[in-house]
């Protein structure tokens, strides 16, 4: 079982749309599990036609600190505000208060005031395992509003996808990661076998791709590029191709700009089913990935 992770750095360049179509072409020949690891703003389920998210399982990967009445006796209470690396503790009239939106649950404050502070597990996400109408499973997650710990939620989703994959003897796990290069992306990339970097020919697209690929390099994982909307700015597409050559990364495919991408999104239909002439292109991208893997 091999894991293919899709990332981009920049948001909105087409990660989820690409992941949906790639999963469908892969599933024609192989057993796959798709995993939506963008837990802040999960969209892969929507694109795979899952309208109602049923049988959600609430999970907890995080703690938060709570202050109780014994805090008045803690001799260290005035140090709490300085110790908190996340600026979550303020002291008002000698009594500490915790801003729950900033607390990361590291527990440093509890070590200073073991009696006056409790660390409680918080249910910070919902996890969904479901079959899709395209014949493969999807594992998806949703961070609860205002909660933290997205990297650890990604790890839970990956673990679940792996378990399903082992059970059904899957050939591939396809991971749709989040925008950015932070904890979610790092958790997505870790232990992947191949990374598809998707980008668009704009200054931000290339800049963010560069940053995202430096994370991939850190883990020494092979990667390939897909240039989306490549015909919107051909000069910049050339720049991306030069960058790929310098880095010795192969271009897996180039997707033209097409208004039907937006129409497919609005209709919540994966692109290759909405505009069937793209099936060849996606098959080619798939073959290119498999030839490197």
């Amino acid at each position: 079982m091999k894991t293919i992770t899709i990332l981009s750095g920049k948001g909105g360049v087409g990660k989820s749309s690409f992941a949906a179509s790639l999963s469908i072409v892969l599933a024609e020949k192989y057993k796959i599990v798709a995993a939506d690891c963008d837990v802040d703003a999960p969209n892969l389920g929507l694109l795979l036609g899952i309208k109602k998210f049923k049988n959600l399982k609430r999970i907890s990967t995080n703690y938060k600190a709570f202050i109780n009445e014994k805090i008045v006796k803690c001799k260290n209470k005035n140090k709490l505000s300085d110790i908190c690396a996340f600026h979550a503790i303020t002291i008002e009239e000698g009594i500490p208060a915790i801003n729950k939106f900033l607390c990361e649950g590291c527990g440093a404050c509890k070590l200073l005031c073991p009696e006056g502070i409790e660390l409680r597990k918080v249910k910070n996400a919902k996890i969904l395992e479901t079959s899709t109408k395209y014949g493969f499973y999807l594992v998806s997650g949703q961070l609860e509003i205002g909660e933290s710990g997205s990297g650890k939620i990604v790890e839970v989703i990956k673990e679940k996808a792996k378990r399903i994959g082992e059970k059904i003897k899957a050939d591939f796990i396809v991971i749709d990661s989040s925008a950015g290069i932070g904890c979610q992306v790092i958790a997505s990339v870790r232990e992947s076998d191949f990374v598809v970097g998707i980008t668009e020919p704009t200054p931000s697209g290339l800049n963010d791709l560069r940053r995202a690929l430096s994370v991939v390099e850190h883990f020494k994982i092979p990667s390939g590029l897909v240039i989306n909307k490549f015909d919107m700015n051909k000069t910049f597409t050339k720049k991306i191709e030069r960058f790929a050559k310098e880095k010795n990364i192969s271009i897996l495919g180039k997707i033209p700009y097409d208004i039907r991408f937006v129409e497919a999104l609005v209709n919540l239909t994966p692109l290759i089913l909405y505009a069937k002439e793209y099936q060849n292109l996606f098959n080619k991208i798939k073959d290119n990935i498999l030839s490197i893997l």
């Binding site: 948001g11 909105g12 963008d38 837990v39 802040d40 703003a41 801003n99 939106f101 900033l102 990361e104 961070l143 509003i145 205002g146 933290s148 997205s150 989040s178 925008a179 950015g180 932070g182 979610q184």
Partner: peptide, 13 residues
């Protein structure tokens, strides 16, 4: 940033 997690919350506060 995109999303709704910690760096976005920190930026919004």
């Amino acid at each position: 940033a995109a999303g709704t997690h910690c760096p976005v919350i920190s930026a919004l506060l």
